[in-house]
Design a protein around this nucleic acid. Structure first.
Length: 303
DNA sequence: ACTCCCCCCTGTTAGC
DNA sequence: TGCTAACAGGGGGGAG
């Protein structure tokens, strides 16, 4: 389900409702939810107990929450340590929502839905945090925080290969253009390649290509400089507008990932609009089969 | 080293 | 009404 705007909405919700709080218990209800965590379900749950959420961060479609060390400090503190600055967090809870994942914050006594895969309660006795995921493509894991090759920013070790997303400072448009030019692939595949540019999924790829008037199958090495910058502007614009317009509803006790209502009906120009008139030229939008999915485009605007 | 495709799941819906 | 097939917004891993 979620692409960058939806994941950012979730990040902001967790930041507001969970950061600063200390986990009392962690429970894994479906082991698939932590399949990438080497410690397994029990190890994951044990590792999370007693940890405090320090920050809520995001790159592309990945979320992570820096954790304190859980009170595992040495019992005797040396003079050097007393004078030293506090160590930056070295570990985090990494989350990917996959196709259907949600992070929900709410009354700890509310009924457990059948799709809850993991649950965290907090030492303050307040709202709990539930990882809900119908299709179980999403996952959680505890991970070390490291510097990626570009040293731009500390990120979880397993996502070192994920490129900066176009809304973060570390994103370098020149570097993107250079790498794009070297690729031998179609422009839509490149937009979906999270190691080249992150945060864009099938919907926003189609929307950005429509805005930039580019055909999805266009070979990347034939794109002119002006076309690349047009594309990048379109990507940034559509993500930014979706973030604003799609502001998913969540109240004090609820973080909602469902961005379908509201934004989708009003603002999509291509995605899911097969047969409907193009907003620019009224030509019916066409649907092509692409990577076992769909690609929507205007046959007239996007040659 | 790169690119591409399969496949991990469950639920909904269109079509017969 | 009930069955089946297609499809759904992701990404890792391995084949080529």
């Amino acid at each position: 389900m979620p692409e960058l705007p939806e994941v950012e909405t979730v990040r902001a919700g967790v930041e507001k409702h969970v950061v600063g709080r200390t986990v009392a218990t962690a429970e894994v209800l479906n082991p698939r939810a932590v399949r990438r965590d080497l410690a397994g379900p029990d190890g994951f749950a044990a590792a999370m107990a007693g940890r405090t959420f320090l920050r809520a961060e995001r790159r592309g479609k990945y979320l992570w929450f820096a954790l304190d060390d859980g009170g595992a400090q040495p019992s005797r503190i040396s003079q050097e340590d007393l004078g030293a600055q506090a160590e930056p967090p070295s570990e985090a809870l990494l989350a990917h929502l996959g196709m259907s994942g949600q992070l929900l914050v709410g009354d700890p006594d509310r009924p457990l839905s059948p799709h809850v895969r993991a649950r965290f309660t907090f030492a303050d006795g307040g709202a709990d945090l539930r990882f809900t995921d119908q299709r179980t493509f999403g996952h959680l894991m505890t991970v070390p925080l490291v510097y990626p090759d570009d040293k731009s920013r500390v990120v979880p070790e397993p996502i070192k290969h994920i490129a900066p997303d176009p809304l973060e400072d570390a994103f370098d448009p020149k570097d993107f253009a250079a790498r794009l030019a070297r690729k031998k692939t179609q422009v839509k595949r490149a937009l979906l390649d999270q190691s080249l540019i992150s945060g864009v999924g099938n919907i926003y790829a189609d929307e950005a290509l429509w805005r930039a008037k580019l055909h999805w199958a266009r070979p990347t090495d034939t794109l002119k400089r002006s076309e690349v910058s047009r594309l990048l502007d379109a990507v940034r614009d559509v993500l930014t507008e979706a973030l604003k317009a799609g502001g998913t509803s969540f109240d004090a006790l609820y973080v909602n990932v469902n961005g379908e209502s509201g934004y989708f009906d009003r603002s999509l120009n291509a995605y899911g609009r097969e047969g409907e008139p193009c907003g620019r030229c009224a030509t019916p939008i066409r649907r092509d089969s692409f990577m076992n999915r769909s690609s929507y485009s205007c046959p007239r605007c996007q040659k």
